[in-house]
Design a protein around this nucleic acid. Structure first.
Lengths: 208, 208
DNA sequence: GTGAAAAGTTGACGGCGCGTCACCCATCCT
DNA sequence: AGGATGGGTGACGCGCCGTCAACTTTTCAC
């Protein structure tokens, strides 16, 4: 009765359920990283566990769905960091710079996660519609709108502001994993300066 | 001897070869648009022509390869327009603004091309490594480096400049096809202002 | 503790897309 | 004309797909 914290709270049934799910996700992470998303099959994933093929479908409908689960796991790790960084920020400059830096830092130190992405020929960016990812974007957007509200940022189209941040962030992140000589600090400084400088120059939006 | 311009230059052999190739590409465009890239199979494409399944493989190795051919066709249409716009530009501001505007205009007026892209869950951006596309990027990059050389643009990392332009362009283009109320002009003004303003604020690069 | 019900795992199965290849026909060349 | 060449054809073997009936394990009531 020492380590079975699980066994007492939830029965053995629920326990293996969670463990199987995790086994599949872990196997998927490994296999995606090795073969790339496009080339891996559901069979490849299930073969990398000790489960039977049918079992896969008790947990996920397709490889697409496991992939989304993977992304949600990733987003779950980055989102709190980004949020914390935004909360800490005392002005808009810190807000932006903290966000870029945190994101780039994560990308650089978590190569493995992004390797799958890069190895895959048919997908250059993460899907942006898994729940965790969407939630993360929504948070950022809300903060951005608050900044506009309070006059710290010119009254520009929030959609386009978001699009620009996201576009620059992901595109620069690509170079961060591809190039050895590019530091997180340089990337963050670049993106921050570009964005902050750009925002100041933005045209006023005509109100409907 | 009126319309067979083809038949005299090249024999019937070459002619049907070209026509088959085009038939496959056209079918692919239709099928990708309807089913999305991920869901369509080589059989779907070939079924949409009156050719036999084996014939497909005389022309392309995989659906991936047809897709690249499709993209090259697209790039072939945009690239000259972008180049012309850059040549016409009398300063850096016109250079950037013309590029964004041309690209956005193309995206907005060529919905069909981008529908495939958007319908597909596993690919949010075009591949950037087909020959035509790469060539287009290279051109832009060369012009950018020339601008840096001549001092019009701060001596920033050209990779990151490119990444930013591309990131903003594609991300804003997404909104352009998704939103009815966003005009090419607004999008172009936004992207141009953001980028030009941002460039001015960029940190000097420490030379190696 | 026992036995029946519920939950979950297993792998075999029909269906289908894959890429190949032996066959065959249309075009080309002399 | 007729042999040679290029290339269209579709059947084939293979492997993956998602399903499902049979089986095993856990749970629960008594």
């Amino acid at each position: 009765m020492s380590i079975d914290l699980d066994a007492k709270t939830r029965g053995k049934r629920e326990e293996t359920k969670a463990s199987n799910r995790q086994a599949i996700i872990d196997a998927a992470r490994r296999v995606f990283a090795e073969l790339g998303y496009g080339a891996t099959t559901v069979r490849d994933i299930i073969r990398a566990t000790d489960l039977a093929s049918g079992t896969f479908y008790n947990y996920f409908k397709s490889k697409e769905e496991v992939f989304q689960a993977l992304q949600d796991e990733t987003a779950l790790r980055v989102r709190p960091r980004l949020r914390a960084e935004r909360v800490r920020a005392r002005n808009f400059e810190e807000f932006i710079s903290g966000s870029f830096r945190t994101f780039f830092d994560f990308v650089k130190n978590d190569h493995a996660t992004f390797a799958t992405m890069r190895r895959n020929p048919e997908m250059q960016r993460v899907r942006i519609d898994t729940p965790e990812v969407v939630a993360g974007f929504d948070e950022l957007r809300a903060d951005l709108e608050r900044a506009i509200e309070s006059g710290v940022v010119p009254d520009a189209d929030p959609d386009l502001l978001m699009a620009s941040i996201v576009g620059v962030a992901f595109e620069v992140a690509n170079h961060l994993v591809a190039r050895e000589d590019l530091s997180v600090d340089d990337a963050a400084k670049f993106a921050t300066a570009l964005f902050l400088g750009g925002v100041q120059a933005l045209p006023k939006r005509r109100r409907g």
